[in-house]
Simulated assay, not measured.
Amino acid sequence: MKLFTNKFFISGFLFLLLLSIPLTLFFVSKQQEIRSRATPSTTLSFNPANVTATLNEPFTVDVNVDPGQNVVSSVKLVINYDTTKLEVTSADVTPSTSFGLTLEGPTITSGTILISLGIGFDVSRAVQSPTKVVSIKFKPIAPTGGTPSQITINATQTEILSLASGDQPGENVYMKNAAPATVTINQGDSPTTAPSPTEATSAPSPTTPAATAGENMPPTCSALNVDRETSGTAPFSMTFTANGKDTDGKITKVTFDFGDGPVQDITEAGNIGSNSVSVQVAHTYRSPGTYKVSATLTDDKNAISTVETCTQTITVTKAEDGGTGGVGPTSTPAAATETPAPTPAATDTPAPTLTLVATIPDTGSTETTIAVVGAVVLTVIGGLLLLAL
């Protein structure tokens, strides 16, 4: 017992006890910081991943994002390509309507495409399922020979941000594992057309176009997809995606009938001008009701697809008093149906929606409570020992 009444022993024990308090708080805070960091699970991919193209005949490649466990709010996309084989202009880069704002670009510089997209202040537009980010039209300018050309995503410069509860603001959640798109460019069939002047008089060539025209098949609309549940309260905004193809021609127009009056024709973007399209359009329903939405495809010979496989039924109910409906205040402008009108959304919606990002992480609260209680207990014990001196 004399050992515990020794002032030097008690002083040393008190010193160690007080030293353990800040150390305990430090280690607990570091553990909480590690647990609250974003878990990258977002991937990017090309569609199609393998392209066989003909010299001077443009083709389109889509870049898609799969958020995994993240909730994507913005994408900064940097793509590299071979300028000796492919040619791109800024007009050939078409952003997806899934993102409300184009933050930067598109910029084309020495084999690099840069574009940044974001959802703006409308948190309801955050991407939580696989979605197209951008469509890029490439023009082949030289044959690839035996080695295909590659289109790649720059892993060090590409950045994706998330609003998920476990993610930190400003932390990149891109997994940096995108496979490149390979492009094989063929010379084309031009050498076979010149050596046949005598065959032009034998009349087989006029019969071939006539047979093709007579056998024209209409395009097929394979699916009409939506980006959320098909029911909600007014005003209710939704993005529709029509997918389809034409086996013997090119699709020149996609027509959307929203069921509430407006009909919208899309003649650009979504790979229109080729034999396979994926066209997106946004629309807002402002009155309660049940609406049948359909999409039809028109080819270069004016044949039109049927609507049986490309329909959706949208149910809109009246919003309760004080409610905001199926979309936030930013959905009120009619610009929801048009890609180039993000500015009104920024002015109509209050900035506090951004505080969602800062207040979401709450990981490790139990550990912090234990640490604080432990620090208080150690301080009390230390005070009692000090009084014992």
Rank of each mutant, 00 (worst) to 15 (best):
L16R: 03
P361A: 11
E171G: 02
I266Y: 06
I360K: 14
E87C: 03
S287E: 15
T337W: 08
Q187P: 02
S129D: 09
V293D: 09
T366F: 14
T5E: 15
P219R: 05
E320V: 14
A223G: 07
K2E: 15
P22A: 08
E320Q: 13
A38F: 00
I360Q: 14
T332H: 12
V226A: 10
T230L: 13
K245L: 12
L25P: 03
N154W: 10
E215P: 00
G111T: 01
N6W: 05
V63G: 06
R125F: 05
E171F: 06
N56T: 06
P350S: 11
V134C: 04
S124M: 05
V75M: 08
L23W: 02
P40E: 00
V307D: 14
E199P: 00
L354T: 06
T252M: 12
A303H: 15
F59K: 02
V88R: 03
V88C: 05
C221N: 09
I304T: 15
K85R: 09
G244V: 05
I34L: 11
S135K: 00
S237W: 07
L297N: 07
T353Q: 07
K30T: 10
T290E: 13
A351R: 06
G261I: 05
V123A: 15
A282L: 04
F27W: 14
A194H: 05
V226Q: 05
F26Y: 13
V65P: 07
G111N: 01
T5V: 11
T290I: 13
L386T: 08
L378N: 12
S45H: 03
E229Y: 09
F258Q: 00
R228A: 12
N271E: 09
I160V: 15
G118T: 04
A282F: 00
D92V: 00
I10T: 11
G325A: 03
A200T: 13
F15C: 14
D260G: 10
K292Y: 01
S41E: 14
Y291V: 02
E33R: 10
D227L: 02
S231Q: 13
A213C: 02
A178K: 00
P206G: 07
A211D: 10
A341L: 13
T317I: 05
T247V: 15
Q168T: 15
T239F: 11
P288E: 05
F15T: 15
I136R: 04
F258I: 00
P197R: 08
T252N: 12
A223F: 07
N47C: 00
A336W: 08
F59M: 04
T84W: 02
P218Q: 10
A388E: 05
T83P: 09
T233D: 11
I136Y: 01
Y174C: 03
V134F: 04
P350E: 10
Q168N: 12
T247Q: 11
V75C: 09
S222V: 11
T233A: 13
V51D: 03
F46Q: 06
R37V: 04
S331N: 04
P361L: 03
G68N: 07
A334I: 12
A142V: 01
K301D: 09
L77Y: 04
V376D: 04
I119M: 01
A211G: 13
T184H: 01
P342A: 13
I79N: 06
S124V: 02
N186G: 07
P206D: 11
G232K: 02
A179E: 11
G289T: 10
T39Q: 14
I360H: 15
T107A: 06
V316W: 03
T252I: 14
L354S: 12
T112F: 03
V65E: 11
D257P: 00
V380G: 03
M217F: 14
